[in-house]
Design a protein around this nucleic acid. Structure first.
Lengths: 351, 351
DNA sequence: TTGTATGCGTTATCAC
DNA sequence: GTGATAACGCATACAA
């Protein structure tokens, strides 16, 4: 049976109040006393019971991370970034995986996070204003990652500009028939992000006098299989698109597979652009839009600390940078001359 | 300000004890009373304070998951599997990321999990008997994933048999010069698994009268970059190995990249086998050893529940199955006839 | 079936 | 600088 604060108090000959102060580094404790207490605590292998501390202290020291899934590259990285930054400040990170309508509904209905976390980071989960209002009504501060929402601080990419840049890269190479993989799916995931990214493609296409037909936007759920299927559909189109933008690297890899299985070459017959700069992207020579996911996690923790420190301050909205990384899966379409050279960042090996 | 159990008691005209019983589905509550309480709780949006409940109830309903990192495919999948299975039983899952000697040391020294979790699942972290004894001295039950340890229940693969099978596959194709990527690295990760897997390769090689020279075992930390570097080293060897077994798919993908960058062909010049059956393995045609990581997570939760229910029962040791999946990255070395056909499972698309 | 009373292990507010 | 002591919000023997 573990030692309690009373045991430490007895052993060091002081009161529990002093033990609490001494161990937490609060002022108004004489150095000598603090040492005695520390020694006693060590000898007894004492650690404060988090539940008791949280009950009395009114803080949970826990960050709730709401995300649609855990095992995609992007989400596991985000988790890692938040966990690392949070751990240094003494926060636990508790995942709430709400992929699929049912789990999201249950999460919103049961609100298992109440009295359980100090703050909620909602990543890539569609939150309309009503749902957000529900969340905020619980009194739990909410930060949003991946999209812009009124009434809550947010950190996101400029998704629209990012895919517009990727699209211009393809246009510059001479592509005129461009498609997108990763449009909205009904289930089990429901990001708001795809809309922005597709809008970005439309922006760039429109500026070049081109359109994005409906059949040029194929759904995908961020698993490679969905990218493969989407690409198969696109390859069956006549005329066949020569440039494809996948909204995640994982789908891009599935798409590449489909192209090669169809006996076509990359990039001669089809150019492919991904999104994320996944660990393996460099190793499959994938041109992609890079984002610093771990950095985003770190920044979210900083924002959340600021928010907790000054809840009165209004919501802050920040944009994390992206960067087009040109590798081998994009090139001029067979039989077309490039319009001009893309002013893109060249792929470089990480140092 | 949130409602407490006293508020619900007042509103439904019963005592707090009855509210507690009613809401938790305990017996000895009349249906009528239970209903009244439920209605009152709903109206007040009441949820029990987990910290108070845990303090009083002596259970944390939390599973601590100790792992070296979060963002590799394997670990994020494992987390997902445990989270999913745990959530259904009402458990939270709290990650303790101890990659790197420093974090592991701090984890062992501070023991932040004490009074915080009901059970610890230790995955792919090297635990010698002394460390394990330290952990168990805290009174927290420990399950081990990925390796066999005396004194704690464990779930693992038969790593040795798995890589032996992969090696036989290469031998059967006619390879006689075989190397391994993913041997122990000193930092920041320190699995016990590589030793077993390398032993498996040695087993199969030895049975064929072949050896595994030291320079045929290159270190790797499971990131693609390390696989690439390892393969570059192997390609510089003379004679050059024709068959390479990477101890994870992520390293295998890096290795494939190195082969192709060197102007060599796969599998004609070099055959590559991975380990895991990563989501993208199929899409890069990677021959690999498949394991069901999510299933392992689920099984771990079942084992842990059993352990908690009957702590007296001795440790149980289980083995999860693996399966060789033959795809396009393995074939006969140029200029060699296969010894015989491998009796391996053919690659099939997931249904 | 229901209510009363005590304990859970801290932190925080006071006095001293 | 230090020590009582009252919360904190719930679970649970025990009594009714």
């Amino acid at each position: 049976v573990a030692a309690s604060i009373a045991d430490v108090a007895r052993r060091s000959g002081v009161s529990v109040a002093t033990v609490s102060r001494a161990l937490r580094g609060l002022p108004n404790v004489s150095p000598a006393t603090r040492d005695r207490v520390r020694v006693a605590a060590d000898e007894l292998h004492y650690v404060a019971d988090p539940n008791a501390a949280r009950l009395a202290g009114q803080r949970t020291w826990t960050i709730g991370l709401v995300l649609p899934m855990l095992s995609t590259w992007y989400h596991s990285r985000l988790f890692e970034g938040i966990e690392r930054a949070g751990e240094e400040l003494g926060y636990d990170v508790l995942p709430y995986v709400v992929g699929g309508r049912e789990r999201l509904r249950a999460f919103l209905a049961d609100q298992p996070f109440r009295k359980r976390v100090d703050v909620l980071v909602v990543a890539d989960v569609r939150l309309d204003e009503a749902v957000l209002a529900d969340l905020r009504a619980t009194g739990v501060p909410v930060l949003v990652c991946g999209m812009h929402v009124e009434g809550a601080s947010s950190l996101r990419l400029d998704d629209r500009a990012a895919t517009a840049g990727a699209t211009r890269h393809l246009l510059d190479l001479g592509h005129t028939d461009i498609a997108v993989i990763g449009g909205l799916t009904d289930d089990p995931f429901d990001f708001a992000v795809p809309l922005e990214r597709i809008a970005g493609v439309r922006d760039a296409l429109g500026a070049a006098g081109l359109a994005l037909p409906d059949d040029h936007v194929q759904p995908g759920d961020h698993r490679p299989e969905s990218g493969e299927r989407a690409m198969q559909t696109l390859l069956a189109l006549r005329p066949r698109p020569t440039g494809v933008i996948a909204l995640s690297d994982e789908m891009a890899i599935g798409a590449l597979h489909a192209v090669r299985q169809a006996g076509l070459r990359v990039p001669d017959d089809v150019s492919v652009v991904g999104f994320d700069d996944h660990d393996v992207a460099r190793h499959v020579e994938l041109t992609t839009v890079r984002q610093d996911v771990v950095g985003i996690g770190t920044r979210l923790v900083e924002m959340l600390v600021a928010e907790l420190a000054d809840p009165a301050a209004g919501p802050r909205h920040e944009i994390a940078p992206t960067e087009l990384v040109v590798r081998g899966t994009t090139g001029a379409p067979a039989g077309a001359a490039p319009r001009k050279h893309t002013a893109a960042v060249a792929a470089t090996d990480p140092v």
